[in-house]
Every structure is written in structure tokens, then in C-alpha cells.
Design a protein around this nucleic acid. Structure first.
Lengths: 341, 341
DNA sequence: ATAAATTATTTACGCGCGGCAAGTTTGAAC
DNA sequence: GTTCAAACTTGCCGCGCGTAAATAATTTAT
């Protein structure tokens, strides 16, 4: 690397022997210049440590390479994982992802969308808070910025909806639980933050109906995103009140199940499918921690990879011009049998 | 809000009846203009939906309002939580935080620091990967950009080091465990990713020495950031090989302990301090999930709030001009007694 | 070889704002 | 009413790059 400091594209163009507009074109898309030109630029790039000023670049570009990733709650390892996956894919595709978390707060979600606007993003991958989200704000945002919605599937917004097939999840786990023991009760929050929760409840009801079983839903109080604590505290309460009609509990999601397991432990209930066990517990999501609970949690694994890869794919296709009508993509889950049920 | 679209600061200055340079000054710091002027601008701000072009702003500003937050592994809820806390504080202070995770990969960490440069950040709050970090890269970065290091305290870099007092952590938990039962063995990875781990080991050795006890360190194999899996798998192996000389195990951190608890469960060991229990397990960190393990994990709570608030504080003081020598701030932990020990 | 198509270069301008310097107004203290 | 510093205005340049149009060079096709 030479000592001479390159201050701007002008100087870099000079040392590479190419005109500035062509160099600019190269940085926009390296394949848009002749191979010989590209080689000369890249040779200069190796000798001099130059990179375009990103602020000057984005100032006039019609379409930036910025991509926003917005999740509702980053302290949930599920979202951390999917955000990581999406982030990597964006980088591979040559974009600049920026990660944001609403931290469970609707007002923060609005602020994020608002701030995202000034980044002039080429597109956004957005998992909304859900029920608490400000529909009007999101609708307006999606009208202005190409947005793929994932996880929390708000109807009628964005380029596409990418998530999991709640009905299939429910069939899979309800069938399994019923086949191997008593049919499950469904444990959930009365007013869940996530619209998926409603689909999961309905999925449970339908799956039970298919088996000719009466649905047994146990709804508990609790607000916010501290699912584990709600699962533990309200799970204990429900256990004490004898609200579970069978010895099998299907939790609306893994975090609730993790809390519920802690509650079972506190009440000295043996959890699992062994002969000496008193209760079976299952979750949904395959949360990163669910294999380390005691006992390890039987659950339905979301297809992280498929969701992130398709969401990113759809966004970039849309950005690169392919007009398309709004589509909804639902991926199937996989039964992960562990010891809890 | 009026219909007239404001295209730039010039036009906004016109409708607010203030000159553009003064408006510019206002956006840089609202308190730097006269109260009456500020009021006129803010009235216009309510009527017209204008905000400065962030790219044009940052292009020429000597000091941007950008702040980088870099953590080693965002899928760890500990880092997600502390990142959240830091992020909020930055926003409150009027800065624009950008969050990055190295996802456990040193090359990605380097890329992040590299990319951060082009954001011209006013400052960076940085929790390095630790042992795997590229010292030379980090040193160079810290020379160019005001950086406060937290969590993973790499010596001799950055404006300041903010973290936890490992020696005090060890004294607290070792004293407690020894007072209430057998003195603890220390369970850790042989080649931990985090330099804190070395300090924790040393803290354990010193704390044992103070009590006149021989240190009993159980080191296990395992690379990377999947601590829970390492704790489970290698914990089982160590148990099977009878490597724990006492019935009490202090894990280097909570994630390892969470995995170790899963291993104990698999080996049907009763964990806790009750009379019928066979083994006691403790961790360090007060990981968000540690109160939902079975049994709930006894641990030492890191002072998240103090760490994030002081780190941010130091950074902003430094940015705003107060020259200071490098300082190291270590916060004490708090013993969190739960059922596991 | 020549014509036609593609790709580079030159030239010129604009983006939206920061920042400076010189002059003007404001408002509080005397 | 005067004084005077602080706050404001006017005018202008620069930042680093995008982009467009016209021209020139190169490649490909005929």
C-alpha cells in the first residue's frame, strides 16, 4: 500500500488511470465496466486504500444500497438469530444492512421507521411488533419504501409476507401429542402481543377438531414481552387452580414454555413422557435455548433459514425491478422431539 | 401540516423566517440559538414536515452525531440487553446509534470496525470478541476513533475500560458457596473466547486461597460461542469421569452453567442446596434466562445499568472535549441467591 | 475492412448542507 | 440613551460524489 493518501474519487481515478465517472460506475456495479477497466481499477484498489465516501454517495443516488432490518425484540434470541441470518445475506448481496429493535415499544417502532426514511433505504425487512404496532404508520411506510414483512404477518401491507404456517405447526404437534398420550391443553396469554398467537390458537382449535377433540384453552393474564416470567407465574397459578384438563400442555411459544417449565419445577411436577412423569409440556419455535431446558423441550422448529432466505430474496428481486403482486409465503415447521413431551 | 413540500434547509429557513445558517445551527444544537429563535423554528417544524438530509449533514460535519455500538455476539441475551440499554442512552443524548454484532467471528469484527470508519462516528462503544480479536486492528481503530471498551477488557486500548470486577465476583460467590457447603470446583473452557474468563479463573484461585482452600479447576474442550452446548456435553463428560472433587460447581459464566444444568438433568443429578440434592451449581452474570432454569440459577449479577451508563457517560464526556487519561472502571456484582446453590 | 454497437471519457452541473467572514440587528446592562 | 457582546443575516465557497449529454475510443458484427 502506497503512502500517498487518496482523498477522493478524483484522485483515485487519477492514480488508476481511469476517469472519475467510470470509477463511480465501477463502485455502483463492478460488472458494469469492461473487464480490462475493472482490472485496472482493482489493481489500483490494492495499492491504494481508497473507498468512496458513503455520505456523498448516498446523497445523490436514487437508490442507495442501504437495507433496514427491524425486529420487535432483540433480547429474544429467536429474533437475534433470524436478524443475523438476514444480515449476512444482505451483506453477501452487496447491501449495507442496519439493524434495529423496537424493544417491545410501539413508539420506538414508529421512531425507527421514521428514522429509517432518512436513510433512504433500498428496502426494508420488517418483523412488526404485531398487535401493538401502529397500523397506519406501517401502511404509510410500506407505501413509501419496499418492505417485506416477516414473522408477524400483518395483512395487506408490504411487498410480501413471509412466515410460518401456524395451522401446520398445530397439526404436527397436536397429532404427535395426541398419538402418544392425552390430547394437549393450549397455554397462552389472553392478550398476546403477536398476531401469530391468534393463528396458533386457531390452528390448535382446528387441529383438535380434526381429531374429534374438544379444544381446551387456558388463557392467562400478562402484558408485554417478558414471556418467560408470565409463563412461570401464571403457569403456577393455572396449575394451582387445576385449570389444565389433561396432563399435556402445548404452549403458544417456546419462551412461554420455558417459563412454564420453571413453574412446573417450582411445583415439583415431573415433566416428560416417561412413566413416572406427571405432565407433558411442548412449545413452538425451537428457541435456541429450548434444548437446554430441563427436560429439553419438545417443540416445532421454525424454518429460520427458509424464512430469512426467501424474505431477502423477494426483497432484492423487487428492488431490482421485478414487479410482483403481494404474496404470502408460509413455511412448514419440523417436529423436534425431546424429553418434555 | 401544510401541503407545501419542503425540499431543503433553504426552503425551510424561508418558511420559518430564519436564515439558513441559523437553522443549521439549531439542528446542530437547539440550545445554541436564542430562545425566541428556537421557538420560531420549532413552530415551523410543527407545521412543515422537514428534517435535514442526514447524508448531506454528515458529509461536511467535522463531528457527526453517529455512535457505533459493537458487541461480539448478539444472540446472547446478555449482550442484547446491554446493547439495548446503551442504545437508549445514546438516543437520549441526541446521538444516532448503529448496532453491530460480530456474531463470534473475528473477521466480521474487523469488517465492522472497517465499515464503522466510513460512518465517521463521533465515538464507539465496543465490546470486543476478546481473545479472538485482532489486537492490531483494534489498536489502530482506537487510535483513530474515540472508543470506550466494555465487557471484554483488552488492556491498553481505547479511552476507557468499563466492566465487572472479576475478583470481587469470585470472592462473593466462593465465600457464599464455601460458607454454605463444600467449596466450589471451577468449571470453564480450556481456551475461552473472552479474556474475562482468565480474570474469573484467577479470581477463583485467589478467593479459594483466601479461605485456605486448594483451587480445583475443571477445564473442558470446546471452541466458539455455543457455551450452553459445551457446558452440557463437556459437563456430562466431566461428571462421568468424576472430575469434580467437591459437590459444588462454580461455572465461569451463566451460559456454561445453563448447559451444565442440562447435563446434570440428563445424568439425573438432583441440583440444589436441599438435603436430597447431590450437586450445587452456580454461575456468573445473571443472564436473563438464569432465573428460569431448573432449578433457578444462583449467580452473581453484573451491574448492567452501571456499566452501560458509565460507558456512555465517559464516551460523551470525551467527545465533548474533556481530555482524560485512560481509566478502568470495574463494577461490583451482586449475589443472586436462587435454588441451584 | 468498414459499419454498427458498445463502452469510456470529457465536460459540466447539481445535490444539500457545513462553515467562514463580514456586516447587521438584538437585547440586556449600565 | 448609550454600549457592547451575543446572536443573527448575507453571501459565498467547498465537500465528494451522482448524473447527463456529447464526444471519443474500442469492440463486435458484417
Amino acid at each position: 500500500m502506497k503512502q500517498t493518501k487518496i482523498r477522493n474519487m478524483e484522485e483515485f481515478a487519477a492514480v488508476s488511470g481511469i476517469s472519475r465517472p467510470t470509477v463511480s460506475k465501477y463502485f455502483h456495479d463492478p460488472d458494469s465496466v469492461r473487464a480490462s477497466t475493472r482490472e485496472r481499477i482493482e489493481r489500483a484498489l490494492e495499492r491504494y486504500d481508497y473507498r468512496p465516501n458513503i455520505f456523498a454517495m448516498n446523497q445523490n443516488r436514487k437508490l442507495t444500497k442501504n437495507v433496514g432490518i427491524v425486529v420487535p425484540y432483540l433480547a429474544d434470541p429467536f429474533f437475534a438469530e433470524i436478524a443475523r441470518s438476514i444480515e449476512q445475506r444482505c451483506i453477501l448481496a452487496g447491501y449495507r444492512p442496519s439493524l434495529f429493535s423496537a424493544h417491545g415499544q410501539p413508539s420506538l417502532e414508529n421512531d425507527i421507521l421514521d428514522g429509517l426514511r432518512s436513510l433512504k433505504p433500498a428496502g426494508v425487512l420488517f418483523a412488526p411488533l404485531g398487535r401493538a404496532s401502529d397500523r397506519a404508520v406501517i401502511e404509510k411506510f410500506c407505501r413509501d419504501v419496499p418492505t417485506v414483512i416477516f414473522d408477524s404477518l400483518l395483512p395487506d401491507v408490504g411487498l410480501a409476507l413471509v412466515g410460518s404456517d401456524s395451522a401446520q405447526f398445530a397439526r404436527l404437534i397436536v397429532d404427535y401429542l395426541s398419538r402418544t398420550g392425552e390430547p394437549p391443553c393450549f397455554f397462552e396469554m389472553k392478550t398476546p402481543v403477536n398476531p401469530n398467537a391468534y393463528r396458533r390458537r386457531q390452528g390448535y382449535i382446528d387441529a383438535m377438531a380434526r381429531l374429534g377433540e374438544e379444544p381446551r384453552i387456558v388463557q392467562v393474564a400478562g402484558e408485554g414481552w417478558e414471556f418467560e416470567e408470565i409463563g412461570r407465574r401464571e403457569g403456577i397459578r393455572a396449575l394451582d387452580e387445576g385449570r389444565f384438563a389433561t396432563n399435556t400442555v402445548l404452549c403458544s411459544n417456546d419462551r412461554l414454555a420455558i417459563g412454564f417449565l420453571a413453574g412446573c419445577y417450582e411445583r415439583k411436577l415431573r415433566v416428560g413422557h416417561g412413566p413416572e412423569c406427571q405432565i407433558r409440556v411442548a412449545g413452538q419455535d425451537d428457541h435456541p435455548f429450548s434444548r437446554f431446558t430441563c427436560p429439553p423441550l419438545t417443540t416445532i422448529a421454525q424454518d429460520y433459514d427458509a424464512i430469512s432466505s426467501r424474505a431477502v430474496d423477494i426483497l432484492f428481486r423487487a428492488i431490482e425491478g421485478a414487479e410482483r403482486t403481494r404474496e404470502t409465503l408460509l413455511f412448514e415447521g419440523r417436529l423436534v422431539m425431546r424429553d418434555s413431551a
